[in-house]
Design a protein around this nucleic acid. Structure first.
Lengths: 160, 160
DNA sequence: CGTGAAACAGACCGACC
DNA sequence: GGTCGGTCTGTTTCACG
């Protein structure tokens, strides 16, 4: 397991809040010299703590303001079906998340579409590619919280 | 509504895949000159199409490899409760998404924790802050797909 | 929209304490 | 870990066609 200290956590915390930070302003915020900060950042990148740097677009402006959670319950567990399912969901850019879960549901999907009609079209295209029984959907009426920042409190000094 | 053309869509698509792209490589990929590409990018930023640029961290490496969906159904709809609920979920960094939804469920939450024990602690702290009845959770066994990229097909030329 | 150029900031990377 | 100083890359604006 990688060893991380408090300073690394602070650097990661800043970068996941604002990826445009220059080395100088980052160093200033975490109270470190420019070079030491740069060395740590490179190290964290190499060790895989930083997976990617991306631009987060405004979904509303981009015309896909409707977020939908899709719940799939299936009795069908043969590998052939699963392969088709994986291939299908991977091919839809509207489907932004697919999770196999414990509990009542087998799969939870999240999609971004322009509206209810676009969702129905997505649904029709999906079930045409892979047989799905027991599908239900919840439309997001309001995004109360949504962040790409993961909690870093567990990384260091935590009581476990 | 803002007017966007195919070239803008291509620029946004590249940036949401890789936010580290320099103007030169971005211009090359979308087949535009450096300067024209820069002008369009600035314009898109000013118009709010690009909400933020962030680093996406590796949740596993960061010690919060367990993703949980939490489903809340409530009969309690008074504004006082809702205010407390909003304040509570906003205060927990482990809770990375909160959505008010249509359908059977009232709220869907997503949390990132280190494990089942950490989830239980989060749950206890949450219900201590705000009364919740009818809560259920699904633990993510496998992330089949997860992306911050939103579909851009709807933006231009789409049949709507 | 394209080009070129100039000015500036920032990233990168050694050497050294 | 901090400092110095260098080079190189990239950004940001010009002016002009």
């Amino acid at each position: 397991m990688h060893k991380i200290d408090d300073m690394d956590v602070r650097i990661l915390g800043q970068l996941q809040r604002d990826g445009t930070l220059s080395i100088d302003s980052l160093a200033e915020r975490v109270h470190l010299s420019r070079n030491a900060c740069w060395r740590r950042m490179k190290n964290l990148e190499e060790r895989g703590f930083i997976r990617e740097r991306v631009a987060i677009l405004d979904a509303e402006a981009a015309g896909c303001g409707l977020s939908v959670f899709i719940f799939v319950r299936t009795a069908n567990h043969d590998p052939d079906w699963l392969g088709k399912f994986r291939a299908a969901v991977s091919g839809f850019p509207e489907i932004v998340g697919v999770y196999r879960t414990s509990g009542d549901l087998d799969y939870i999907l999240r999609a971004r579409v322009s509206g209810v009609k676009a969702y129905d079209r997505l649904y029709q295209r999906l079930i045409a590619k892979v047989p799905l029984s027991d599908v239900s959907a919840s439309f997001v009426m309001e995004e109360i919280k949504e962040t790409t920042s993961i909690p870093l409190s567990e990384m260091v000094g935590g009581a476990g």
